[in-house]
């Protein structure tokens, strides 16, 4: 055991060294240098204020804000003996009884699909999961636009993935929002882009590594600052969206926000809304999305009790209780 630990220790030390080497260039940049680079090549760094109550009251009178999120849980063992449950929720700040929920489930046992080779099984599962979830989330969003006509919709996660996983529904929601004048925004807790890094690489020939925005921006923005990404930069990423990065809480990490192209004039306003709704001492996520997230979550306990309650016991045991579940 001690042997193994020492091996692992060495490996971790190596990793530390590697990271130091790889990010040598990045860490060498001063905050000032980096910020001026961002200002001139990526987008303007701007200080924003929180919205005041009268502004928020105006939103409320125009239908409030809807938060949309989805969740997935899985129970059972290896393929095909498992069941996945998906749920999406659209929750409006101003409609007390207006929570819209949609749910679905999937198990390979029932939805007979041709058996692919086992190799890409995980990829298929991942894709299907993304697709189901995106579709459900878009469905509740569409329904909530029709029903509540909110001032704005905050989707949990970037908008781009909807285009990838559920193109048709996404187009529908997008059009609907444009027609109804509902602002559509995606809030990205974990940014995965490398816009700044790519720009650095492009301009400075010495850089060959790929740096992600999350690494670069860590601690570089002050509380309440945002970067409105220039069109020409963001277009390289994907068409049809405008994006900002913002530091919405005292935590040094930065979150991202997307808005559909046609509504780009609202981008600062929406960034301020996100900033306003984010607790100072938090991870940077707007409280409303956290509340929605918490409500939509299907916990393991609920999942299990639901299966135990509504599936016949013999079926449940036969199909979905794995060896791992029986360990205790």
């Amino acid at each position: 055991m001690n042997e193994l630990n020492s091996i692992l220790r060495e490996r971790v030390k190596d990793l530390n060294l590697c990271l130091r080497e790889k990010y040598d260039y990045l860490f060498g940049l001063s905050k000032k240098e980096l910020r001026s680079f961002i200002n001139s090549h990526v987008g303007e760094i701007k200080k924003m204020d929180k919205l005041d109550t009268s502004q928020l009251a105006l939103y409320e009178s125009r239908g409030g804000i809807v938060g949309v999120d989805g969740s997935v849980n899985r129970l059972g063992g290896a393929h095909p003996h498992y069941v996945e449950v998906y749920q999406a929720l659209a929750k409006s700040t101003s409609q007390k009884e207006g929570d819209l929920v949609l749910a679905d489930l999937y198990t390979p046992l029932y939805f007979d699909e041709e058996e692919d080779s086992l190799v890409d099984e995980e990829i298929i599962i991942g894709d299907r999961r993304n697709e189901k979830l995106a579709t459900l989330e878009l469905d509740v969003a569409i329904e909530s636009v029709k029903k509540h006509k909110p001032y704005a919709i905050l989707m949990d996660g970037g908008l781009i993935r909807y285009n990838i996983h559920a193109h048709d529904r996404w187009t529908e929601l997008r059009q609907l929002c444009e027609e109804e004048g509902v602002i559509l925004v995606g809030v990205i807790k974990d940014i995965k882009t490398s816009i700044i890094g790519d720009t650095i690489k492009e301009i400075d020939g010495r850089v060959s590594n790929r740096y992600y925005d999350r690494e670069i921006l860590f601690g570089q923005l002050d509380y309440g600052e945002m970067i409105i990404i220039k069109d020409e930069v963001s277009k390289k990423l994907a068409r049809g969206y405008a994006s900002v990065f913002l530091r919405s809480s005292l935590a040094p990490s930065v979150i991202g926000m997307d808005i559909i192209d046609s509504q780009r004039e609202h981008i600062q306003e929406m960034a301020r809304l996100v900033f306003t709704l984010t607790p100072e001492n938090s991870r940077g996520v707007p409280l409303w999305l956290d509340i929605v997230d918490k409500e939509v979550l299907i916990s393991d306990d609920i999942m299990r009790s639901m299966m135990e309650e509504y599936l016949d016991r013999d079926l449940y045991e036969r199909f979905f209780v794995s060896e791992r579940d029986k360990r205790s």
Partner: peptide, 18 residues
């Protein structure tokens, strides 16, 4: 929620939003 400490200004904002 998830270890975040929510401050009252955010709650006030949510209240203004209904």
């Amino acid at each position: 929620i998830y270890g975040d400490f929510v401050d009252s200004s955010v709650l006030e904002s949510l209240k203004a939003l209904g």
